[in-house]
């Protein structure tokens, strides 16, 4: 099958890549670009573990074809913290807002998207924003807590 050539940005770095027409963005990011934080968990858009930011909007990379990202900007959780973790990531770390960690990259991107547009979200807004990202371990409470109260425990660091 004829490959498709695409130009795009991944984590602020320009890429030019040949992809199969059937390659998903998730497959391309993991297998062709070696960025492993988006996870393969359901492969049908149910769980959000493969979330990436497409032009700063959280999307499921398993539902997008790699060919569609020509000319766009992709960000994974690695791209959020090229030098050091963002305050949001630090809050997640301090608040035990993860357990096994498998959903964490996607969850953090969904949270990041919300906080970019709404710096003081209500509990309901947080629940809505992350409701497409499944977590089987935490019961969500600590994730919600650290987004509603992003200053919680911040005195310990700095």
């Amino acid at each position: 099958m004829k490959k498709i050539n695409i130009n795009f940005e991944l984590n602020n770095e320009g890429w030019n890549l040949d992809v199969e027409p059937s390659d998903t963005l998730l497959e391309a990011v993991r297998d062709k670009m070696g960025v492993k934080s988006p996870k393969i968990a359901c492969d049908r858009g149910d769980c959000g573990a493969c979330t990436v930011l497409l032009d700063n909007k959280a999307v499921r990379s398993c539902l997008i074809l790699a060919a569609e990202i020509d000319g766009h900007k992709i960000t994974t959780v690695e791209g959020l913290c090229p030098q050091e973790p963002t305050p949001l990531q630090k809050h997640f770390a301090r608040n035990n807002a993860f357990q096994c960690g498998f959903c964490a990259p996607g969850m953090i991107l969904a949270a990041h998207e919300l906080l970019q547009n709404n710096q003081k979200p209500s509990r309901e807004e947080v629940q809505e924003a992350i409701s497409g990202n499944l977590c089987r371990c935490t019961g969500y409470e600590k994730i919600i807590e650290c987004m509603v109260n992003p200053d919680l425990k911040s005195g310990e660091d700095k």
């Binding site: 070696g34 770390a93 960690g101």
Partner: peptide, 21 residues
């Protein structure tokens, strides 16, 4: 105390089997 695996897990650095090349 803060979990010892926290930074790995929130930065995407934590490796699971499928992430090994």
């Amino acid at each position: 105390v803060e979990r010892v695996d926290s930074l790995e897990k929130v930065t995407g650095a934590a490796k699971y089997v499928d992430d090994i090349d």
